[in-house]
């Protein structure tokens, strides 16, 4: 059963938007109450940042224009947190929702499908934004990170990242057939690409690894979120090229997700 229904004519737009809000509230309750999932998704970005800061990230690095590493790690882990919520957590949870019959059950209930899907996507966005704000606060007050003077480029990068990685999370969920394999498959793709992304160690420009990373969106999202934090004179806060690569991946993910989406479990 693929395809999402258009908004129902029944009921007002306001009532339907309120329905999304209501659904989102329960999505949030369900997410934050799962301590393990919440720590894995939200806690790791904070833990990684603090660990790297403790191991000398306040030093300056030549590879990134002689700015303090922490200045790069804070937006980098904000991007990591975003991807963790939108791609990793959403991808795994969509498989579980589908394979346990949760999507089918809600499909049969009167809630409009677009309101349900909207709430699930909004849930990933809210988790991302909570993490980004948390990491900015830790960076600013824990490590004296210089925050951007103009927020628009950073907000744009986060917005593009949320949309694109949510689409990629939804897309990858359609490629996994059982809930047992959801965690391993989704996470392995994520962590392999993360290690190629230059987040833990800056990539040497021109190296084979850097060339490979260039083809994937994770590296580019990190660059796009880090650009507004670049304190080097003359640096542009808008990384248009990187945003474009992320957006193209997001569009591809959206096409896969829409074409392959199904409401019912694979088992039978």
């Amino acid at each position: 059963m693929s395809g999402l229904a258009l908004p129902s004519k029944r009921g007002t737009v306001v009532a339907d938007v309120m329905m999304v809000g209501r659904q989102l509230r329960y999505e949030q309750l369900n997410f934050w109450r799962n301590r393990f999932g919440a720590v894995f998704t939200v806690g790791f970005s904070v833990i990684f940042l603090v660990m790297l800061a403790m191991s000398g990230a306040t030093h300056r690095a030549a590879a990134i224009g002689n700015i303090a590493l922490i200045q790069y790690y804070v937006p980098g882990f904000a991007a990591y947190g975003l991807m963790s919520a939108c791609y990793n957590n959403l991808g795994i949870s969509m498989v579980i929702r589908r394979e346990t019959g949760l999507l089918k059950r809600l499909r049969l209930s009167p809630i409009p499908s677009w309101a349900l899907v909207g709430a699930i996507l909004a849930n990933a966005a809210v988790i991302s934004i909570v993490q980004v704000i948390l990491l900015l606060l830790i960076g600013r007050y824990g490590y004296n990170v210089v925050l951007p003077h103009v927020w628009a480029p950073f907000v744009l990068a986060i917005a593009v990242g949320v949309v694109a990685f949510t689409a990629l999370g939804a897309a990858v969920s359609t490629l996994v057939r059982s809930q047992e394999s959801a965690g391993p498959i989704v996470s392995i793709i994520f962590f392999v690409l993360l290690f190629l992304s230059g987040l833990w160690f800056p990539l040497t420009p021109g190296s084979g690894l850097a060339k490979l990373a260039n083809y994937f969106p994770i590296h580019h999202l990190i660059l796009a979120t880090a650009a507004p934090f670049d304190t080097a004179p003359g640096a542009s806060p808008y990384a248009w090229h990187d945003l474009l690569v992320v957006a193209i991946w997001g569009a591809a993910g959206l096409i896969v997700a829409i074409r392959r989406f199904q409401w019912e479990p694979h088992r039978h």
Binding site: R10, G11, Y26, N30, R33, R105, L108, S109, P110, P112
Partner: peptide
């Protein structure tokens, strides 16, 4: 939706958010 509002469906397996 007008029909779905008048139907009740009990499936074989409970599928509800566990938390």
């Amino acid at each position: 939706r007008a029909l779905r509002e008048r139907l009740g469906i009990v499936l074989q397996e409970l599928a509800v958010e566990p938390n």
